[in-house]
Design a protein around this nucleic acid. Structure first.
Lengths: 343, 343
DNA sequence: CTGAAAGCGCTTACAG
DNA sequence: CTGAAAGCGCTTACAG
């Protein structure tokens, strides 16, 4: 059985297809009487407009693309996607998801530009565009919204939102200093992909600035790199125990690292926070039950905002604020305490 | 500057639009010479076909819908979406994501049926359809693929894939018995939404069958419900410590619960696994670094399979196997050991 | 192997 | 407020 078209509705309601279209869209002037006849007919036939046809005619695709630089199932990407999705589905837009997780996917994406002609706006998350990429993205001719790309992509994007990770880290370092810590280390994961400049690279920058601002000596060996693996925690512990003098506080680039670090430290008999304080980043769902202190940011929330900005821009509206800083807050839980030597 | 159309390519290549279409699609018989002229012209103009136009004409939407019953950012949903996405993007399909996380969203979805006319296939995950819902989904007239809906939706779906959670749990119980455990408890979360019949509800069923098969007395008070919250671990510990006799092994409905349970047990001075063994379910990323024993399944992998099945069905092809059982395997890590009393 | 023609189902100026 | 007409950009039988 063929799906009913706008012509079927028109016939049933005794009006022209143009009128059906206008009535259903609601914005045009249609008499209340006609409108209700149309709605009724549409209802009875179970009419749903073909998106293809309306988009072809109107020149709008009804889609907004989200481009992320890693697996969509990671905590960050999936929270972000959730937020973007909420905003878009409220506004009647489809979410078109693109993942460019490695050099090859990235090259393919930017050379074939699958979003071209197929999206009304683009949201790009977390990694810095090269000159060429930014240019070809602009050439698509749709608004670009950056998420957590800091000022990296400001040349290309019309709007952006992101966490000020530098300030967040600086605040954390300050707080640790107030608690008497002067030997503060930072654990970072070696980038999954060196071709990408990530916004999260800002975290170590924030750490350094915080150390400097506090007037503490910056020690290169206090910046500890660990691989992306389930061994990260134990590798970090070995590295930490080898340090002289021992740090009394450790900032981690993510909760994931912080969680396994705390676990391994305790296995080694190191007390947390009595001997060493540990702080993560993200406040992902496992942080609270495990008592992990952390810096909270909410990709789902600023994803929503990013989605909304993209929708507005796609509709040709203007934004009152186009560069937004999303909040990040320090969450103190069990793994943080005063430095041992001043106890 | 207007985007080039197929007419522009045709003119440049000196052929008709029909020929351009055929050449670009590759399946029709076009002379090698013509084909290369067309490709060259297309390349030079930076032509990308409008999806709207081709879909409108061909009657295919190029989209496949994934309907999940919870937040897309949860571990399960996002892993699944990642897998489905991989398969679809390989095959040139867009992923249309729908979330029906509560009663209202669910009612809205099934009454307005936004996928109608807008998708070539539907993948439905994790929850059981009602009679009415199944019927209206079928009325859309596109193939339906079930993921982890066990036999719940078999009446409606043309194909399905899912983990046999019952067998997985039964195996686990058997394994624990071999290790001398006879007092085995099960911790389950109270359903987020009681309107939904979840596939994960099968896990407790598997636990019961396993207990029965092992010839152990089934104790109702060994089935411990905890809420969905960061307190779940400590609530579970209180409940466990109040039991008499104490269980020597605890199966958890998820790794999330297992992780916080182990954490809380250790805080209470209960040794894991010496005093109590703990096993989770999922093998999500934090399980390995924390040494959590668990049952592994891979939503990203069977999501890929589900996506592929949906694509095939959307194209009108037939499947060699339409009901597939995805593997689940027991992963033994630090939190499992022999029962204390036989040490 | 290639082209001319029709049409997918809408929306939107243009008249009235 | 409403209708007739044109057209968005493709694809696909139909001829040749």
């Amino acid at each position: 059985m063929r799906e009913p078209t706008i012509y079927d509705v028109a016939k049933k309601a005794g009006v022209s297809p143009s009128t059906v279209s206008r009535a259903l869209h609601g914005k045009d002037r249609v008499s209340a009487d006609t409108r209700s006849k149309v709605f009724q007919a549409s209802e009875q036939l179970g009419f749903t407009a073909s998106k293809e046809a309306s988009r072809l005619r109107s020149g709008k695709t009804g889609r907004i693309a989200l481009i992320v630089g890693n697996r969509m199932s990671g905590w960050y990407s999936s929270e972000l996607a959730e937020g973007v999705y909420s905003a878009l589905s409220n506004e009647g837009y489809d979410l078109l998801f693109y993942r460019v997780a490695d050099r090859k996917q990235r090259a393919d994406f930017f050379s074939s530009m699958p979003i071209k002609r197929n999206t009304d706006a683009v949201i790009i998350s977390s990694f810095a565009l090269t000159e060429n990429e930014g240019q070809s993205l602009r050439d698509v001719g749709v608004p670009i919204v950056g998420v957590n790309t800091m000022h990296l992509n400001d040349r290309y994007s019309m709007a952006s939102i992101g966490v000020d990770e530098i300030s967040a880290l600086k605040n954390l370092i300050h707080r640790l200093c107030v608690m008497g810590h002067t030997r503060i280390a930072f654990i970072q994961t070696t980038p999954i992909n060196k071709d990408f400049v990530w916004d999260a690279d800002q975290r170590i920058e924030g750490y350094r600035q915080g150390i400097r601002a506090a007037g503490i000596t910056h020690r290169k060996d206090y910046e500890i790199p660990v691989p992306h693996s389930s061994e990260a925690g134990s590798i970090a512990v070995s590295a930490i125990l080898a340090l002289d003098p021992q740090p009394t506080a450790i900032c981690c680039i993510s909760d994931e690292i912080a969680i396994s670090l705390v676990h391994e430290l305790r296995r080694y008999g190191v007390r947390v926070p009595d001997d060493i304080s540990v702080v993560g980043f993200d406040d992902r769902e496992m942080a609270a039950p495990l008592g992990i202190s952390t810096i909270r940011h909410r990709p789902d929330e600023y994803g929503k905002t990013a989605g909304l900005m993209a929708v507005r821009l796609a509709r040709g509206e203007t934004l009152d604020r186009s560069r937004i800083v999303a909040p990040a807050s320090l969450i103190l839980r069990d793994t943080i305490g005063p430095a041992r030597h001043i106890n």
